[in-house]
Amino acid sequence: MSEITRKPTRTGTAMALSVAGLTTFTLGFTTSTAAVGGLVATVALAAGLFRGSRRIVDAAGGLFFLSLLFAGATGAGTEALLLAALGSILAWDLAENAHSVGEHLGRETDTLRLELVHAAATLVVLAVGAAVVYGADRAAAGGQPITAVVLLLVGVVALVTVVTR
């Protein structure tokens, strides 16, 4: 053995593709176009992981985003869309992490614990975030005036700008 194989790890690849598959499945409850988009994104993610290309992995993330956007714009259910958004972010995160771990440690190193901890951390944050957002939406149920939505959007834009480094 002389050099390590600097490719996305098998653990990370398996986890990312499973999550991407589940996300595609969830998108299936919205519209068929979005489901096809999710499928294309999953294939792209697989290609990015097998080729070891960060750019293709990013493009797959972008495809997931477009599918979400399309599903949302065509009136998808809140739950399905939120779940699909969670899945998309998780799938991209796992894939990118598999790439990064592969670059640092290669496929030969045992990185199961490292990647499981990473996946768990991201999953917990996303689950809590989705619960909070969903809860807020339920609490304000009953057709809030669009004024509120716009004000909130302006607020979000301003806060994101502050938060962005």
Binding site: L151, L152, V154, G155, A158, L159, T161
Partner: peptide, 10 residues
């Protein structure tokens, strides 16, 4: 702006 707008929204 962010805080004011968010507060007003809520």
């Amino acid at each position: 702006v962010g805080v004011v707008a968010t507060a007003a929204g809520f």
